[in-house]
Amino acid sequence: MIPNLDNLPVYDTAGVNERIARFCSRSIKSNSKLEGLRLALSMVDLTTLEGKDTTGKVKQICYKAMHPHDSLKNIPTVAAVCVYPAQVANAVNALKGSGIQVASVATAFPSGQSSLEVKLLDTKFAVDQGANEIDMVISRGQFLAGNYQYVFDEIVAVKKVCGQAHLKVILETGELDTLDNVRKASELAIYAGADFIKTSTGKIQPAATMQVTYVMLDAIKDYYIKTGKMIGMKPAGGISTSKIALQYLVMLNEVLGEKWMNKNYFRFGASSLVNDILMQLVKAETGNYQSSNYFSKD
C-alpha cells in the first residue's frame, strides 16, 4: 500500500551541505584508501547507454568488466554491466560464467514518457533476454503533478514483471527539484518494492550529487529502523574520479555503516570512474602515476 507521504522528514539544504562538507573533509590515506578503492571498483555498474552502442562495443565493455586491468593483481571485477534492453542478450553471452550481473535500463528509459503497457513490455523483454537487474525510471511528470498513487502502482507493476531480477528504481533527482521531493520519491519506491533506489539516468544534469544521495540513504536508514529490511543505493552519473567515489563511501560508511559496504547494497553507476580507480591503484603499487594511455578505454 502507498506509504503516508504527509509526515515525512524534511530536509534543510544548508544543513545537508554542512554534513556533506564533513564527509568530504575526511582524510583517507594508505591502507584505508586502497581498501576503499578496491571496494569502489567492485561496486561499479559499468555502463554504456548510447544510441550508438553496437554489439562490438558492448562485448568490449564486458571484457573490461571482467578484466579491469590484468597487470594489477588482487583487484575485483566490477559488479555489473548496464546496457539498453536490446544489448542484454549480447552482454549475458559475453559475461557468461563471470559472476558479473547484467543490468538493463527499462520502462522507456530515460524519460519514462510512455504507457504502462509499453513499459511493462520493455521490462519483460529485458528480463526475458536474461537481465538480472532492471533499472526502471519513475514517471517524474506524474510525480510532480502529485499523482503519487500512479507512480507507486507503476513501480509495483514493474516489480511484478521483474520476477527474480532485482529492481533498481531511478528517481531522476535532477528533475525532482527539492530534497523533500527526493525523500518522497524514495519512500514511494521503497514501499513499492524497489531493491535499490538510484539517483539518475545520467541523461539529465545534475545527475548524482552527494546531497540527494544523502537524503536517499536517510530514507533507507529510516526504512531499516522501521522494518529491518535493507534497501540498496545506487548513485549514478557524474561520479568520475576516485576522490568523489571515496567521498561517497565515507558517507555510506558513516550513515548506513558496515552492512551496506558491499556491492549487494551499494553501486556506482559509472564508466570513466573505473580507469581513475585503476590509475590510483597502480600508483599505490608503483609509486608513479601513469598516463591515461596505459589504461584501456572501451
Partner: peptide, 12 residues
Amino acid sequence: KMFKASWAYDEA
C-alpha cells in the same frame, strides 16, 4: 550500533 561504521580510516 546497527549502522556502525566498519571502514576504519587510517591515521591521517
